[in-house]
Structure formats: C-alpha cells, structure tokens
Amino acid sequence: MNILPWDLSVIPQRFFLFTEAAGYTLQITFFGILFGLVIGLVAALGRLSKHNWISAICRAYIFLIRGTPLLVQLFIVYYGLTSVVTIAPIPSAIIALGVHNGAYIAEIFRGSIQSIDIGQMEAARSIGMPMGKAMQRIILPQAFKRAVPPLGNQLIIALKDSSLASTIAVPELMLKGRQMGSSSFMYMEMFIIVGIWYLIMTSLLSFVMHRIEQRLKVSDRE
C-alpha cells in the first residue's frame, strides 16, 4: 500500500458516509427523468403533429436544448430566473434535468413511433378507431417497447449528468466528494469512492433495464 501516494484503506472506511449523498443523486435523477419522460412524450407527439405550428414549437425546443450544455440550462434555471422566481437547488436540478432529458427522450420516442409499420395505423383506423385512440392503444405500446433500450441509455447518461447539480449546491455525490476531499486532502480516495457509487448505480440501472426488456419480449417469437 505504501508504494502508492494514497491511503486506499480509507475507501472502505468512508464509503458509507456517501450514502445520503447517493440518495440525493438518485432522487434528482429519478424525478428529472420522470419529468423528462412526460415532456419527451408530449414533444414527440407534438413534433409528429400535422399542425405545423405545434410541430415547429417542439422542433425549436429540441433544437435549443440539444444545442446548449446542461450546465448552462442548470444555471439559467437556478441563477437566471432569480429575478422572476427563486427555485431551491433540488427542484432547480430536477427541472433542468427534466427539460434537458426531455429533448433527447422526445427524439427517442419520435424515432420509435416512426419505426412502427404504417400498416398498424391503417389497421387501427380501418376498424374505426379515431387517431388518438389508435395512437394510445396500438402505436404507443409498440413504440414504448422499442424505446426501452435507448431510454436505458438516456437514464444512465442522466444519472451521471446529475453530478453537475453539485455546482448549484445540491448535496449529491459529486459535491460530497469535493467537500470530503477538501476537508481531508484525500481527493483521490474520495473521488474513487464517488466513482464507485456511480458505477454501482449505473450497473443496477443497466440490470433493471435489461430485465424490463426481457419481460416485454413475451409477444415476440423467441
């Protein structure tokens, strides 16, 4: 151990001091993604709308959000809006993560909706289903299934991106790592702990998404 300039034995010792911070990371990721799913679905349907102005609004949203960094969006929500409304750090992080991921999720949903064979919509309409009902009963259930793998990917990205919330004082993993590092001068050890926490959470997410994928496979030929 002495060959290395770091005291790696503190890693297991201090590991669980990060539990609460990991909870915050999970919390902002979970609600951020939930918010993002709602925005994403609305924006995807909006983009596919035959009303040009609705489609244009949704395209503009996706263009603006995908073209700018999450950090900028986070600062706009937390600092930028203060002259209008003050939002606490955690809600700010959830809003920024939601709006940010919503743009990507919208594109995931749009792609998966468009990948469903046109014959499905025609068959639904041919038995007299209105457009909305056909979307809800026939197209979206199939599209969601196809969206699961890319959504899993997006979820992992969101979890890691939540570390940016450390910049607006959300007491999540990254901030905890910086605080613990500066108070002990054991930066390497503390950031290794942070890294391990992220790795554990992303692994669990991958596993859960994989299970969901498997369970949705019932109607496919194996």
């Binding site: 064979d117 014959g119 025609e122 068959a123 026939i138 259930p141 199939q142 299934k145 109607s219 496919d220």
Partner: peptide
C-alpha cells in the same frame, strides 16, 4: 390487408 397488420402486442 396484404400484410395482415395484426396488432403484435395483443
């Protein structure tokens, strides 16, 4: 339809 277009998730 020529290609049946059954709903595969049902």
């Amino acid at each position: 339809f020529q290609h049946f277009n059954l709903f595969p998730h049902m």
